[in-house]
């Protein structure tokens, strides 16, 4: 499940107050989340959680649920 913490990092980066984000949410369904802002969101998530993603890991993400799992796996290490 997408944590409120991750959701807030994404919303802050997109300059949104509130928007429904769950496991199945994909970038194109969120206002402002396009290919140009994607890289900034990933960097913001990395900085907030103090983790680092490899490009190939990011490439495999299909939705926000996958991003949450990736964050969790990094934090567990």
């Amino acid at each position: 499940m997408v944590s409120d913490e991750l959701k807030q990092v994404i919303l802050k980066q997109l300059n949104l107050d509130e928007f429904e984000i769950d496991d199945d949410t994909v970038a194109p369904s969120v206002p402002g989340w396009d290919s140009l802002s994607h890289v900034n969101i990933i960097v913001a998530v990395e900085q907030h959680f103090k983790v680092k993603f490899k490009s190939m890991e990011v490439l495999k993400l299909k939705n926000v649920g996958d991003l949450q799992k990736l964050v969790d796996s990094k934090l567990a290490k």
Partner: peptide, 10 residues
């Protein structure tokens, strides 16, 4: 192009 913009290192 879709992959590059997500992973510019390509």
């Amino acid at each position: 192009p879709f992959e590059w913009v997500i992973a510019p290192v390509l």
